[in-house]
Design a protein around this nucleic acid. Structure first.
Lengths: 121, 121
DNA sequence: CAGTATCCACAGTGATACTG
DNA sequence: CAGTATCACTGTGGATACTG
């Protein structure tokens, strides 16, 4: 049940709404460690300690937390192997693989942006 | 001067470096108000109070701060008119307009993501 | 090995009041 | 009108130690 106001097609609210999925996407990539973790998994299935080894200065706590986050969003899949001691493998889901596209777009834009800004100085 | 370690072409460091421009791009869009402000300016030149009027609950402080941020990154242009009282106009720079592209890509991915996640439940 | 538990510091945001 | 100044709160992330 929406508020009792009616919104015309091109209203401010409609425009804010159009940004919601954009905000979702940005949110997924946000935080200090999301991109490094995803980048690490772009190279294939890895164990917890392998990802940690790929990323300088990340703590177990943050790696664990961020992996859970990515798992919740069905971008990363967690597989437990009943060895001793247990080993756990992480990999991108099919849906997670779809990140390659936008990440490349973001890299293109970001690279351009760097160029643009440094040229201005 | 880099540390005295030599990095092979596909090293972890190289891979982290590849994410830097991506992080730049995400950084630009980060924060609660960046996207709404940019969205507002997508519709053309606006005054400070007009942007504020477009965005529910934003405070003057945050609008001012975020606009400065966007200006620093040459995404937004600020023009002062010597009327009384002064009026100030904000608009996207040419470079700022280049955001339309990735924002649309992000919207596409974000919309897909929403669909994907809700389907899973 | 793959985490969890605790505690702490700080950046981001909000609320409110004030100004050229 | 277009902001700035101040204070307060909250969440994110860092450090360290511990565990199945």
């Amino acid at each position: 049940m929406n508020k009792e106001v009616k919104e015309p097609p091109h209203s401010k609210m409609a425009c804010m709404k159009a940004m919601l999925p954009v905000a979702d996407a940005v949110e997924i990539l946000r935080g200090k460690w999301k991109l490094p973790i995803i980048a690490s998994l772009f190279f294939g299935t890895k164990r917890f300690s392998e990802i940690a080894g790929d990323i300088p200065n990340i703590t177990d706590r943050m790696l664990s937390k961020e992996l859970k986050d990515l798992e919740t969003n069905d971008l990363v899949k967690r597989t437990i192997h009943n060895t001793f001691p247990v080993t756990v493998e992480y990999s991108l889901t099919e849906h997670g693989e779809s990140l390659r596209g936008i990440i490349n777009e973001l890299r293109t834009w970001g690279t351009n942006h760097r160029l643009h800004i440094t040229k201005r100085l």
